[in-house]
């Protein structure tokens, strides 16, 4: 267990920045974002940055490959490997979310190289939570303000600085770069850093595992979907949503194949060239999103695909969010 004084944090990030791109929480127009850090004030007092860790490891748009030439002579190059990066300031729920989607990308018969390479080039330095927002419900999802899952290094903020714990080999290596800035933590420091962890919402959420037989045709989904505006706010902010589309962009004789986030709530998400659409109705799309997280993903991975970060709760313009659905499902089942 190490300790770093709060004043030394910028020095640490600056040092890490010599070899890596560093991201840190920075306030932009009043809200905190994990942003490329170039010496700005490191924001504090936030519950969760607007963008989750996902956005930096699984960027909204990235190149899969580059191609060049005409139709009879084309050369294809894989996209260049990502530069090393260190992300400071994400929250444990997001780190867990990142690990959750890492399983999707790295398990199974195919490994998603784009994700793997970037994840491996990334060191995640998570800061445990000192406060919870009314929208936080990580405990309901089996996590806590200091969960270790998905983090390389975990920072516990205390009054004078942070208690620092490396959780992975990558974490240890990165801390080696910080030699001189870190001290061994005293017992007192450790005690004080750990005692103030908040208690996010847990008790009144019913985490149910809904299976298709139980609730697929329940009128609840229609009721829920009427409210939905079919925007992508929830999925784009969600740390565990990972749907993408692939598309080509060309400039003259050169082009790139890009991979970009997509959203299962958009009506054309499943529209095929011939006009077939497997989920043409809003009800089907809304239901699929929640059942994916609560039923389908657990069927494949043994865990629900939600970490209780609360972003959908805070940002859905019409409060169509996971916390609500979990509450509702409890009632729906009882009904």
């Amino acid at each position: 267990m190490k300790f770093i004084a709060a004043a030394k944090l910028p020095l640490l990030l600056e040092r890490l920045g010599r070899h890596s791109q560093v991201y840190a929480p920075v306030a932009v127009d009043g809200r905190v974002w994990l942003s490329p850090w170039t010496g700005e004030d490191i924001a504090g007092g936030y519950v969760n940055p607007v963008n989750s860790l996902k956005t930096l490891v699984y960027p909204q748009t990235e190149a899969v490959l580059e191609f060049e030439g005409g139709e009879t002579d084309v050369t294809v190059r894989e996209a260049s490997p990502p530069a090393p990066q260190v992300i400071f300031g994400g929250r444990p729920c997001d780190a867990a979310g990142l690990d959750l989607i890492a399983r999707v990308f790295m398990e199974g018969p195919f490994v998603d190289e784009l994700f793997r390479r970037r994840r491996e080039a990334t060191t995640i330095m998570t800061v445990a939570c000192r406060q919870a927002a009314p929208s936080c419900f990580c405990r309901a999802m089996g996590l806590s303000p200091a969960s270790e899952r998905g983090s390389d290094v975990l920072f516990f903020p205390g009054p004078e600085g942070y208690l620092v714990e490396a959780l992975t080999e990558a974490g240890e290596q990165i801390l080696e770069q910080a030699a001189g800035l870190l001290d061994d933590a005293t017992g007192d420091q450790a005690r004080r850093a750990c005692q103030e962890l908040p208690v996010p919402l847990a008790g009144d959420l019913n985490t149910v595992r809904l299976t298709p037989e139980e609730g697929f045709e329940h009128p609840y989904w229609e009721h829920l979907a009427r409210r939905c505006r079919s925007c992508g706010t929830c999925t784009y902010l969600c740390p565990t949503c990972y749907c993408t589309a692939l598309f080509d962009v060309t400039r003259g004789t050169r082009g790139r194949r890009l991979r970009g986030w997509d959203c299962c709530q958009f009506k054309d998400f499943l529209l095929m060239a011939g006009g077939h659409n497997a989920r043409p109705q809003k009800k089907q799309r809304v239901r699929n999103r929640f059942l994916h997280k609560l039923s389908y993903h657990p069927a494949n991975y043994g865990e629900q695909a939600c970490v209780g970060c609360g972003r959908c709760v805070d940002n859905c313009p019409v409060c169509l969010h996971m916390a609500g659905v979990l509450k509702d499902l409890g009632e729906v089942e009882r009904a």
């Binding site: 932009v28 127009d29 974002w33 607007v50 909204q60 505006r229 079919s230 925007c231 992508g232 706010t233 999925t235 784009y236 902010l237 959203c263 958009f266 313009p317």
Partner: peptide
């Protein structure tokens, strides 16, 4: 630039 670089293109504005 500062505003638009934050845009997620989630279409929340359009859908609202």
């Amino acid at each position: 630039t500062r505003q638009f670089s934050r845009c997620l293109r989630c279409h929340a504005c359009r859908q609202a």
